[in-house]
Computed example of a mutant assay.
Amino acid sequence: MENQRKQLLKMIEEGRISADEAFKLLEAMEREEKEAKQKEEKAVEVSPFLDEKAFQKEEPPRERDLKKKVFSFLDQTVKKIKDTDLDFNFGTSYDVNQIFQHSDVEARSLDLDIANGNVKIEPWSQNEVRIECSAKVYKVNSQEEAKKLFSQETIFSTEEGKIRFNVQNKGIKVKAHLFIPNVEYNEIILRTFNGPIVGKDLKIGNLKAKTANGSLSFENIRGEKGEFETVHGALSLQNISLNKCEGETINGAINLRGEARHVDLQTFNGSIEQYLIQPSQYVFLKSTAGSIKTFFAPGAFIDGSIRSNFGNLTCNLPNVHILEEKNEKIQKVLKFRSINSGESVTKIVAESRTGAIGLYEREV
């Protein structure tokens, strides 16, 4: 049973099965083992998570608590989002294609909010804002009614230095492709409730991207601060250059490549993989049910600690002195520091409940 649970956790981490499917498999295995024990022993019901020693002590096993946190909580959260909140689209729909465009735009901020749909944003050489929309409109009886409702529910403006695009009707599923002037923006805010967000080649002061159900994918981002948040979806940040980068997801992997002085990445059910091309000042990485891998730039000076309850810890960095190492059954800790550290030192803290953590030097 222990090996089966480990295999299920690995399958979730690799994306081969969902948390919901793993939870149901665990429940089925529990029932089968419980019924077998009842027939053989005809005694007190014993959970398949309990070994003999745990049963003699009459204490709830740590594995059961872990299973509840990793599967039950996650299953309830994602199931609520998928089955209840996101059940927007049903019945007949009508397709509406429309292009919104304003010329001679002098804007330095952007605010986009779409309840249901996909977003892609990128700059272009024109001094114009162009939004190409493909929408499916539900709960209407004709094509004309669909066009009218889409026009009524859409807000598009480029006034007072701000680009605004807003579609809050959840019965309209929008696929929006934004082309914005290739200038540096003070702030860009992108929000969807049900759909992924993709952005590339952006120069910004502050970037905020948030969705409840969908992935976040950004490439070639230059700016001061980036905040990325999703509940159900992966987070991919490629070739970024930020002073501060914060990313969070409940159910999804996180992959970062680039440079940031302050990094804070957290996922509940998913792995974290990070490639830093320049030294950072502070890095915090946390995963409850996934592995963590970080690759540092050659010659980087490191000071920090990594810990996991059940996963293996690896610090494969040259010229690093191990300050403390704890390798107990339910808790592993490794504290370390580079020998002869220079002025620029990267402070790293990485934590995982069940997954392994590894620190490596990036190949040139």
Rank of each mutant, 00 (worst) to 15 (best):
I272V: 09
G205R: 03
L216R: 15
S151G: 01
E145N: 10
V129N: 00
I254V: 11
Q331A: 04
G214P: 08
N243P: 01
N89V: 00
K332L: 12
K37W: 07
I204P: 04
G304Y: 09
T314W: 13
L256N: 01
K244S: 13
V263C: 06
L313S: 15
D85Q: 11
L149I: 05
A135W: 01
D303I: 09
S142R: 00
K139I: 09
R257A: 05
F179I: 04
A115Y: 01
K173A: 06
E229N: 14
K329A: 08
A135T: 01
E128R: 03
G358A: 08
I163P: 15
E227K: 12
R164W: 01
A289P: 02
L25P: 00
L66G: 15
K175V: 06
L323P: 07
F336C: 07
N182R: 04
K225L: 14
F179H: 07
L323T: 10
L359N: 07
A146P: 14
G223K: 05
S134G: 12
A209Y: 07
K203M: 04
R108W: 07
S47L: 02
N269W: 07
K34N: 03
R257C: 00
L216E: 13
I12A: 05
I250E: 05
I330V: 08
R130I: 08
F156N: 02
G342R: 11
G205Q: 07
D75R: 05
D113F: 09
K347Y: 11
L25F: 04
